[in-house]
Design a protein around this nucleic acid. Structure first.
Length: 285
DNA sequence: ACGTGATCCTGGAAGC
DNA sequence: TGCTTCCAGGATCACG
């Protein structure tokens, strides 16, 4: 389940190895992932200038544009040599003139490969909200993005048009760290709550990156990755277990079709009271 | 305009 | 043991 920290980790790891390589061949073994893979034969002879990330898209830079690779939830890139066997779910690859092959494997096929010509923005990226780890992502910006949205705050922060890169695991964890009940209506949050939430989102994503993408749970288990995942999550996947802070039982429930975990004691449901003149924020148990 | 929920896909876990 | 059912997830689309 690659989320923002995993993509950032992949981008950083890939950069020194791929930069400067020249494409010899592009091989498409399956036409359709989540979206059709475009024909990219025009990349032959072009040299990789570097890698980047926008939202959960890995960006591979070329002189005439950018290759956007989304790993969906089960996708990953791996290096191969010409003699390596092609896996059942190796759907696409770039071969370079030095003999290395970069393969996209994605058994659930939720990923996609897109091309974005220079100085244009692909349709898939136009509606995206701010990057959570940039300084420009502030309490004020989050407040603007939320506007009058009355949905549960957890659903709202997972909406990529509000802020990108906050997947289910990080949404659960960020709400735990900010002590906000996931059911709270987004528009009911005060500036103080939003400030805590912004700090928590930045914190959990940064921690994810620091741990090299800790949430690679159903990833091919490289030794120790499971341990990192368990060490990272305070509420996600811990329904029925003790809260690590207060020992209350962690609750779980489907919210917005996603499994949601929270501590009923540490996390308070926020309800805005609109009695009489003006409105006051009140924290309700 | 906004909110909700179905859909895509498949390996592995859980249940019978 | 072997079969079936369920679950995970992000993005998109249809509908109310």
């Amino acid at each position: 389940m690659p989320e923002l920290p995993e993509i950032e980790t992949v981008s950083r790891a890939l950069r020194p190895n791929i930069t400067g390589l020249t494409v010899q061949q592009v091989v498409k073994r399956r036409e359709k992932l989540r979206m059709p893979i475009p024909n990219l034969e025009f990349l032959v002879g072009q040299t990789v200038l570097g890698t980047d990330r926008r939202s959960k898209y890995l960006i591979i830079n070329f002189e005439h544009g950018q290759l956007l690779v989304h790993l969906g939830m089960s996708g990953f890139l791996h290096w191969a040599s010409p003699t390596d066997e092609v896996g059942k779910h190796d759907h696409w690859e770039m071969r370079f003139t030095d003999g290395q092959i970069l393969r996209l494997r994605d058994h659930r096929r939720f990923g996609c490969v897109l091309w974005q010509p220079k100085d244009t923005i692909h349709d898939a990226l136009t509606h995206l909200g701010p990057e959570p780890l940039e300084e420009a992502f502030t309490t004020e910006i989050l407040k603007q993005q939320i506007g009058k949205k009355g949905s549960p705050i957890k659903t709202v922060i997972m909406d990529a048009s509000v802020v990108v890169g906050v997947g289910n695991i990080y949404a659960n964890e960020a709400l735990f760290h900010s002590k906000i009940d996931p059911h709270s209506k987004a528009s009911d949050l005060s500036d103080a709550h939003l400030e805590k939430l912004v700090i928590a989102i930045k914190f959990v994503l940064s921690e994810g990156i620091r741990l090299g993408g800790a949430t690679l749970r159903d990833y091919h288990s490289v030794d120790g990755s499971d341990g990192l995942f368990a060490q990272f999550t305070k509420v996600y996947g811990r329904a029925g277990q003790e809260c690590l802070v207060c020992k209350s039982t962690i609750q779980s429930e489907m919210l917005g079709q996603r499994n949601t975990f929270w501590c009923p004691k540490c996390q308070k449901k926020i309800v805005k009271k609109t009695s009489g003149k003006g409105s006051k924020q009140k924290i309700k148990k």
